[in-house]
Write a protein that binds this DNA or RNA. Structure first.
Lengths: 326, 326
DNA sequence: GTGAAAGCGCTAACAC
DNA sequence: GTGTTAGCGCTTTCAC
């Protein structure tokens, strides 16, 4: 910037004013500065601006994984909301590890972001302390079953599982299987299953088999798991999947092996991802407000508001979509 | 940091040394400083470090969209490679707009990243100038058909289209349809189609219909487009899709309407996404090294090396996967 | 309409 | 083993 100032024969201050279009500058000077800047290929240094202003245009975003469309849709909602307002996301991925999250949050906070968006309500003490110490705005997304640090935009995962079970029960199914992934690390999937299981048991139904693989969820994993579950001696009438990818894999298994849905086996998923609409048979699932969670979370961090007045939990709800698989 | 120094009764410099574990510090002092830091909830400010050191641990990443698994896989490769080495991605999405890319690149560069990763080889002059001026390392990914700014890791999109056409031609198809999306903004899809079309014409085949929708690609869009193309009076024997999502939609249309593949119509896609494996019928497609592109790009930015010695184009190749749809 | 000075938080280099 | 100094690039404040 000093170089530009010298080249244009003015002070740094004037260059600063021209670059940002603030204050008073004569047409003449403005022109000379712009020329000089272009000639020297001047690139402003936001580190300096942010250090000086004690504020950054950054929003930190923590995601469990990029391997599921669910989170890239949330991220999409966030980036779309931020981009119009000159804010930038800095993000990181935890792969469902609390320890990774802890380190990641510390790293992200050192950039002094305006705010931070976290997935879910479960975080280590160290994570909570770091966030409190940084005095940064926090929003938690996805889940509302628990105690948010400050505010959460999401849905009741437990209730979603419950609702799915109740629907299946009204359809007459009593003997269920469950297919999940990510071991027990996906805490929201665990909550959904708890809701599902509780509702089933309350009605005298039973969970015959739980098949939770350790790796990430995918259609192919769902297909394999479905083959396994359906070939078990105690074969369930209906299968609840922890998400749509797994459930779609179940559909593929059935289509490929002449298993008729829902008479041979009924299926239900979770998320209501757009690709389901393209399948030959419509999956019973629960539609979640993924984009909206991202948008609302980002908006909350942007907007001015009295923290004390805001409700701590915003339930964005869910919507059971009856399909042809149950 | 000054507060911590006062609390611990030492100088800022000592606090700095303790925090980073560098230099000499007595056990005593170290302990006092750590206590003080914890008590005051000290969070280091990387803006200051980066300004002072004239270097950041940031890698800028530009992506066309998050709506396609292809790019989240590339991003996954990048983040996985960076995270081990204390580097952080800052990213933005262009939605296939060159103007958005220009602005985004300027914004990202103002953070003084170590390097920047761009999709494809086509960028506006302003983008190129900004990058050159910033003196930042650049890697372009996905495509190698053109002139990279510095180095590109990718594959020949034109050759991939050609290879697909040649394979289809050996199978006896001569009358083709093409289904794409994103208008003409997805320049790599355009290159693939050019390769495909040229190869088809060279063999006396013909492209009967080109159906390129303006929106993003999706399975459901592919399903709809396939219905349209197959109901046209001049119905093609085979359809080439600009990617797997669209092609999978085509498969769904055929499965749902009793259209037998490949006898009634043959299909081919592009990318070799994992979900294809789960489908009831295997799609003929071209497998691309998505994760590897991300990993190699990130590694290149991390590694020390003499810029002049490095080849400018790294062809990571592709792999035609014959399926049951052609 | 323009400039000079000061300081944001941190650390390399050099005392002691 | 610890402290002092200076400066990274920018902008707020105040002077002219």
């Amino acid at each position: 910037m000093d170089d530009v100032a010298i080249e244009a024969g003015v002070s740094q201050m004037t260059v600063s004013r021209v670059m940002r279009g603030t204050g008073q500058t004569s047409e003449q000077v403005r022109h000379r500065v712009e020329q000089a800047a272009r000639k020297l290929g001047y690139v402003p240094n936001r580190l300096a601006t942010s250090l000086r202003d004690e504020t950054t245009p950054l929003i930190a975003v923590v995601l469990p994984t990029l391997g599921n469309r669910v989170f890239s849709e949330v991220l999409d909602g966030i980036t779309a909301t931020l981009s119009g307002r000159g804010l930038q996301p800095v993000f990181g991925v935890t792969e469902y590890s609390e320890a990774t999250e802890e380190e990641l949050v510390r790293d992200l906070l050192s950039w002094r972001p305006q705010g931070i968006i976290l997935p879910g309500l479960e975080h280590s003490d160290a994570t909570r302390i770091a966030i409190r110490a940084a005095g940064v705005r926090v929003v938690e997304v996805m889940d509302i079953d628990g105690d948010p640090i400050s505010i959460a935009f999401g849905l009741s995962q437990y209730a979603a599982g419950q609702a799915t079970a109740r629907y299946m029960l009204t359809k007459g199914y009593r003997r269920f299987g469950y297919i999940g992934s990510q071991g027990a690390r996906d805490l929201r999937a665990v909550k959904r299953f708890n809701g599902f299981r509780d509702a089933v048991r309350d009605s005298g139904g039973q969970i015959l088999v739980e098949h939770v693989s350790d790796g990430p969820s995918s259609m192919i994993e769902g297909r394999r798991a479905t083959a396994t579950v359906l070939s078990a001696p105690d074969r369930p009438e209906a299968i609840y999947y922890s998400n749509d990818d797994l459930a779609a894999g179940g559909i593929m298994h059935c289509l490929s092996h002449g298993v008729t849905m829902p008479t041979d086996v009924a299926l239900a998923g979770f998320n209501g991802l757009p690709f389901l609409e393209a399948l030959p048979i419509q999956l019973t699932t629960v539609e979640t407000p993924r984009l909206e969670m991202g948008i609302r979370a980002a908006q909350h961090l942007i907007d001015d508001h009295d923290t004390s007045e805001v409700p701590r939990v915003i339930d964005l709800g869910f919507h059971l979509i009856p399909g042809q698989t149950s």
